[in-house]
Every structure is written in C-alpha cells, then in structure tokens.
Amino acid sequence: MKIRWGVIGAGGIAVNRTIPGMLASGSSTVAAVMRTDERKLAEVQARFPMAQGYVSVSEMLRDSGNLDAVYIASPVKFHLEHALACAAAGKPMLIEKPIGMNLGELEAIREACENAGVFFDGALMMRYHALHRKMRDAVRAGVIGDVVSIRMSFCFRYPEMAGAWRQRKEIGGGGVFMDLGPHCLDLVQFVSGRKIKRVAAFMDTMTFTYEVEDSASVLAELEGGGHALLSMHFNIPEDVAETRFDVYGTEGALLAGGTLGQEERGTLRLKRTGTVAAEEIQYEAGNLYAKEIDGFAELMNNRCRWSEAMDGQQELQRTLDAVYEAASLQETNGEG
C-alpha cells in the first residue's frame, strides 16, 4: 500500500519538485495539500486533483486519518510550529532544510517526535544523486587514497523579488548559506564519511539589497583529517559558473561538475595519480525527489534507524549554527 502524504506549504518546491516526485515514486501518493492562499490552493488542486485541499494545518491534521506522513515545505520560521502539530497527530515528517531556525528548535521537534513515537528526516535529495553515491563508494573503497581536500562551488542568481521569504531573515533565518549550506555540509560528510570538526566562515551581502547574505565562504576541518572549502553565491549566474564538487585524495581525485541542483545530471571524472586521462564515470539519471521519497518510505519501515536519521539532522543543524556563529565572529573582528 502506498504512503499517503499530506503537504504543508504547497508552494514552488513542493508543487514543482516534491509532489511530482511522490507521484513518480513507487512508494507514495499525495492525499492532502495545505496552502493559506485559497486562490493558489485551488491552482495546486487543479494540478493534483487527487489531493484534498486545506487552508490551515489544524484543518488538515483533523482529517489525518487519511494521512501516513507529512512533508513540511513551509518557510523555516514555521517549521517548529508545524512539526509539533504533526508530532501531536502521530505523523512522521519529511521536513525541508533547514529543519529549524536554530538547534534549539530542532531539539524541540525531536523531543516531541520521540514522545509521540514518530520521527522526522530532512529533505536532502542531493545525497540520492547516482554520481554522489558513486563518489561515496569510491572513497570508501580507497580508490583515491585518503581524502585531504574537498572543494565545492554552488552558485546561481537570486535577485530581489517581492514576497521572497528566503530574502527575509525573520522568516528564512538566513540567505544563501541557510538555503544551500545544508546540502553542501551534508554532501561533504556523506561522501567523505567524516563529520565536520570545526569551521571558519565569511558571509556578505555583496550585490543585492536584501537583509540576508548573498555570498558565503566556509572552511571546514573534518574529523580524522581533511579540509573542505565551500563557496555559495546568490549573485553569480548559473550559466557562467558550473557547480563543482571535487574530492582530492592522496592517490587521485573525483571531479564532479554540474551535479549540484534539483535534477540528476552532470558529470563525474576519476583521475588517478600517474595516469594521463581521467575516467568518465557513467550513470543512469532519474528523479532525485522520487528517490528521496522512496528513501523516506524505507526509513518508515525501519524503526531501528529513526534515531540515526534524527541524529544526523541534529548534527547538521549544529554545524549550520556553528557556521553562522563563525561568520558573526569574523564580522565582529573586522569591525574592531
């Protein structure tokens, strides 16, 4: 039987990516969608007529007997409120990144989930990219030796837009790093198999006039050795800056171009020391969001992994907070 999903915050990412992923997956369907704007809700229902529509979370959860899980894609400011309501209704959750505005919010969500006997996981679909999994497998197998350096660049243009909540600190919690940082931090740890030990960071609003950062640079030290340098920008057009995710080891390198994003595409080359030509790694592209939904379905059926999943999200949020703290210290030192 397929998982019946309820969607809180049926906006752009939900409508254009995650709900189609649910329907493309082998495990799920969408049963309910919630959006506060009645006109926009009607547009969502016209696109997904199998879903019952609601204008409030409480209204949707009153009918939660028809739901097996909830996907939370509301602005970050509301994640805590919505997740606590879902936990009280006994529903496991897939929550858009970041889970909360800070670690304290995530810990409150986790406590509520554990008390209710449910769990949550974060929406980090890029870890399901076939090439990122091939990178992880190659690192585990020692193909490039010991990992010593990871370099990641993730950029696109996101100018001022009326009503864009990610450009308001009160609602989104931050800018480019709050949006792209969770993916980058997760992939560094997912591929390397190492946790992040400590961080340094610079953040600025260089180009636009909104109140959150449009540029972020992060240097991370990994447990067991190795450094990661992450560059994220909302002010560099994607057509002039291909995303990069390169992992260098003592015996070779894994060089991924164009793999960071919402579609399973890009290239991966394996370069071994002492060789002239790099090996192009082949893969079969699919739907990242369908893979993410199927991954959550597997997790739902494997209760012994629930704590592990929440541990991972808690560690990610802790690192996210640490990066913002490090950037704040740099600003203070610069002003002093």
Results as ranks from 00 to 15, higher is better:
G142F: 06
A162I: 13
M178A: 15
R168I: 09
F156Y: 14
M161R: 15
G172S: 12
F156E: 10
P182N: 02
V176F: 03
D179F: 13
G142M: 08
F177I: 06
I150G: 00
R168Q: 14
H183W: 02
I150E: 01
E160S: 09
V176E: 00
Q167R: 12
V143T: 15
Q167K: 14
M178F: 15
A162W: 10
D146N: 14
S149F: 12
C155R: 03
H183S: 10
G163H: 08
M178G: 06
K169S: 13
F156N: 13
M161K: 15
G175W: 03
V147G: 00
A164C: 13
G181S: 04
A162S: 12
A164E: 14
P182T: 03
R151G: 12
V147Q: 03
A162Y: 11
H183G: 08
I150D: 01
D179P: 05
V143E: 09
F177L: 05
R166T: 12
G174Q: 00
G181T: 06
G145V: 05
E170Y: 11
S149V: 04
C155W: 04
V147Y: 02
G181D: 01
V143F: 00
F154T: 05
P159R: 06
W165G: 03
D179R: 07
R157N: 14
G142E: 10
A164S: 10
P159T: 02
R157K: 12
M161N: 06
I144E: 00
D146K: 15
G163M: 13
V143S: 06
F177P: 02
R151L: 07
V143R: 09
R168M: 11
I150K: 01
E170L: 10
R151M: 08
G142Q: 09
L180N: 09
E170A: 14
L180A: 12
V176W: 00
G173L: 03
E170D: 12
I144C: 02
G174N: 03
K169N: 14
R166I: 09
M161H: 11
G173S: 06
W165S: 07
